[in-house]
């Protein structure tokens, strides 16, 4: 309880996690694995919205999305919309999602990230011509598989650095 009265500190940890997530998202992979690259940035958004909904909400996710747009070169605001949708979905599911065991959380995250990829593909198709129209669920699957570890590591560090 006494922790709650203390001024917020340890918030610097959030940008660092996103820096790592952006790094992993931009890292070149061999062609075959590129399709199944876990969506690190979405995972981080989901984690922080789940853990700190009062600090990390739709607006911050939107800003992260803008940065991601400038990283991957999509029209500014495309991933802003996608990540704010993602954050909003997590906020809606928040009360239930926190109660779930990790495996069940991973299942929900598979669905949520899958949906956000559909939205991203749809927006991309609407505003810029892309090479292929087929949808790939691999990133959602690998992200869901990695979720327990992402959650575990981040949660440990978050408690350690008292990010509130």
């Amino acid at each position: 309880m006494s922790d709650n009265k203390r001024p917020a500190h340890g918030l610097w940890f959030i940008p660092i996690t996103f820096f790592i997530a952006f790094y992993l998202a931009a890292l070149p992979l061999p062609g075959r694995f590129e399709i199944a690259r876990p969506d690190w940035v979405s995972l981080m958004v989901v984690f922080w919205v789940l853990v700190l909904p009062e600090r990390f909400g739709v607006l911050v996710s939107f800003c992260v999305g803008l940065l991601y747009d400038s990283l991957v070169g999509t029209p500014l605001g495309l991933y802003g919309a996608v990540f704010s949708c993602l954050a909003y979905t997590i906020l809606l599911l928040h009360a239930r999602l926190k109660m779930y065991p990790l495996g069940q959380q991973a299942l929900v995250i598979f669905l949520v990230i899958g949906i956000s990829h559909i939205i991203a593909a749809w927006l991309k198709g609407a505003v810029m011509s892309t090479v292929s129209g087929q949808l790939h669920m691999w990133p959602a699957l690998t992200s869901a598989i990695l979720w327990p570890w992402v959650y575990g590591i981040n949660r440990t560090l978050q408690i350690r650095f008292r990010v509130q």
């Binding site: 909400g57 739709v58 607006l59 939107f62 999305g65 803008l66 029209p75 500014l76 605001g77 495309l78 802003g80 919309a81 704010s84 949708c85 954050a87 909003y88 906020l91 809606l92 927006l123 505003v127």
Partner: peptide, 22 residues
């Protein structure tokens, strides 16, 4: 409250996309 914020952010980002394209 999240709903309003979400709606305004969504409108903002769609605005951004169109301004960026034009």
């Amino acid at each position: 409250m999240h709903g309003y914020r979400f709606a305004s952010v969504l409108v903002l980002s769609i605005l951004f996309i169109f301004v960026d394209l034009r």
